[in-house]
Design a protein around this nucleic acid. Structure first.
Lengths: 402, 402
DNA sequence: AAACTTTGTTTAGCCACTAGACTAACAAAA
DNA sequence: TTTTGTTAGTCTAGTGGCTAAACAAAGTTT
């Protein structure tokens, strides 16, 4: 009785709901027969037949040849038509732009990455347009064509999709949603990169079967995406998950946000780089330090660098422990650039958590690193578009009597 | 499309949903006419009439005399029958047991408090039974009688209502729900005290109009109740909100939970008392220190004690700041025993938050102290029972053909 | 070939909704 | 007082999506 709050209930709602149930069943259990859908969803065979016909007309599913008989007439198998449309997902990072074209099941059909440094907004916008144009042009023919564009950005996005602040890109109060809608006349979704990553992992990655997932996006800074009760929790204005600025050391060093002892001063990529610079590693003198350099050194067995990673893993654990106490999640997923160093972070991180987390919090809890690696965010925003498209598709078509 | 997930949709669901909408409208806008309900909810007049008749039959609402005409026939005003049933809410504390009898609107009709110290489970159980017996006996005649019993406990309660651990009561793996159900044959709800308090404030207190509320129960320890998207968030197993054991000082003092630098070591009643004991206040030598003593000293202007409170307020602010960054709530409510000291805590707390919280988090955010004072939890569990009762009442009555 | 099984469609009936006609009850103007 | 207009609430016919059950189609088993 939640959610719909103010919407009244009528026949349309019933049909919409059941159609959605049937489609979900087919998506998650294909190939499946009408009879099996009826049985498992709990609807009447006739009802399922009728809904399936609607879905067939919409090209959202298709019939394959007959399946195996189990002692009677052979069933007609139904499959989700994942090629009924394509979705564009873009992940804008501080120094890269990654675009993917996916089908309705999140399979990547095409991708394009651009690396840059210190571009102005206008320059990034141009790259964005180029990438989107390229991906759209590359989409195969399909009944529904491009069903939407999603963009993940490293910044604060409010509930209307306006980017209030993206400090590392130096963006402020930017309505990218409007820009893209006006240019492409497609549904556009703008989402914070951590939220997108969380949803990506939930839909296609490590979190597929979980209802309560916390995705820790550890890059230059730290952002967190929250999947609670199976859906993204955004808070009152859309600003939830700013856990990079959670205090873990009351009188710690000062953060650029003005506070002291923020988590991301200890456990982010930036924290690692800053600490490494202080060590004045001889092999990297003069050069601008990058994470990959540190990884290389760790691989070579440099004990100083390895202990840097271990320290960061430990601090990651501290924050994750706080997260566990807050949310009692089933799964914590560490993603973004720091996930690439999981080999060096993992031990101290899990040690910290298993020694420190309250015992009852540790049941049914898994902590892991991103499965989708660098694609989490792009796939996540793509998934938002797909979800949106499918929801709209479930609604009754009001004939316009043309 | 969330929530119901696996339940199929049919006309029963439609009726249930609409009946619920109508009832909610009447509860929140009474007195109101059928016509106005139809208009505002968006249902047809006839439909509303029919649903209202159902509700009248159930005695959940009643008709009062005619209202004022607005130029035509005078409307029949409908009111929520808050006396249609009564709910029992119990708050078990470390050294007290508070019971209330409320009507369906959460108005307290009777209350009983027992103060104790160091009782065994069996002794507390006896007090509990006595209190419940007394409250039930005192309930006026009503169509539905006692509709349920709710109990809030200072401990970890899993999703089945089993108390896994209540350290301050020395309870472990206790199925109080079963005990009470067997004795009273009524619906029983067991809930963590902070969760209950959060719900109490949401329903009847400071949080009435908010969807995202964080209730900080600062007593001997600190627990947190989370109202997200208008309903209680319990996490994967029911253990969310254990924020008393959030690390705010990585290498701080050791907590009884085994970790270091937990929030409740700095901002709870216990923290205050421990700090005061160290000061060896001459006026209280020998006596076991209590919060009320410190409050009295503060009232007398004792600068040392006042600065103790200010310090605690500041630390409360640190944790609340972390909470704001996590959840982006509309409202943070501080409750339980520490709320009584709001006069001395408030300034340093709000200073800490307004200086430290990220600017965009501060819009539409209010921080306040409990409105229901010591009743938050008892009213909260009572509200759970009421909510449950009303939900069940909305469902179709399947005639048993007696 | 006959009997049995299983799949998927069709039909009849049900139920809660909507639209709109209708009755009831009032206020204001004639 | 009567008439007119307005609002409240009920009633009736029609609609749409559901269920149950009969039916047709297409298998397997005996």
């Amino acid at each position: 009785m939640n959610i719909r709050e103010n919407r009244t209930w009528n026949h349309h709602v019933v049909k919409e709901g059941n159609k959605s149930l049937v489609l979900k069943k087919i998506i998650n259990h294909s190939p499946i027969s009408r009879a099996a859908v009826a049985q498992e969803v709990g609807l009447n065979k006739g009802t399922v037949s009728s809904l399936v016909n609607d879905l067939l007309e919409d090209h959202l599913i298709y019939e394959s040849g007959p399946g195996k008989s189990s002692g009677g007439r052979r069933p007609v198998m139904l499959l989700f038509n994942e090629k009924a449309g394509y979705s564009v997902g873009i992940d804008i990072g501080v120094n890269y732009l990654l675009g993917v074209l996916t089908d309705l099941n999140g399979n990547i059909c095409n991708e394009k990455e651009v690396i840059f440094k210190n571009l102005t907004y206008e320059e990034i916008e141009l790259q964005l347009f180029n990438t989107i144009d390229y991906l759209i042009a590359s989409a195969p023919e399909s009944p529904h064509g491009i069903i939407g564009i999603g963009v993940g950005v490293p910044g604060i996005v409010d509930n209307n999709g306006e980017i209030l602040l993206a400090p590392n890109l130096k963006w402020k109060n930017l309505n990218l949603k409007l820009v893209l809608e006006n240019k492409y006349h497609l549904p556009v979704i703008i989402e914070n990169e951590a939220n997108a990553g969380a949803y990506g992992e939930k839909k296609f990655g490590a979190g597929k079967d979980c209802e309560h997932i916390i995705y820790v996006s550890a890059g230059i800074g730290i952002g967190v995406g929250l999947i609670l009760n199976g859906s993204l929790y955004k808070g009152s204005n859309g600003f939830s998950g700013e856990l990079g600025h959670m205090t873990i050391q009351v009188n710690g060093p000062t953060c650029r946000c003005g506070n002291k002892g923020c988590w991301e001063l200890y456990a982010s990529e930036q924290a690692l780089l800053t600490a490494a610079e202080k060590m004045k590693l001889p092999s990297l003198a003069g050069k601008e330090l990058e994470l990959s350099d540190l990884l290389a050194l760790a691989e070579q067995g440099d004990p100083k660098v390895i202990s840097l990673f271990e320290q960061a893993g430990d601090y990651l654990g501290v924050g994750i422990n706080n997260i566990i106490n807050s949310f009692n999640p089933q799964q914590v997923i560490i993603g973004n650039r720091m996930a690439s160093s999981y080999k060096w972070l993992n031990k101290t991180l899990t040690d910290r958590v298993s020694n420190q987390a309250l015992w009852f919090q540790q049941n049914d809890l898994t902590i892991c690193f991103s499965e989708l690696s660098t694609f989490s965010s792009a796939l996540g925003v793509s998934a938002f578009s797909i979800e949106n498209f499918l929801n709209v598709s479930m609604q009754q078509k009001v004939s316009l009597n043309v």
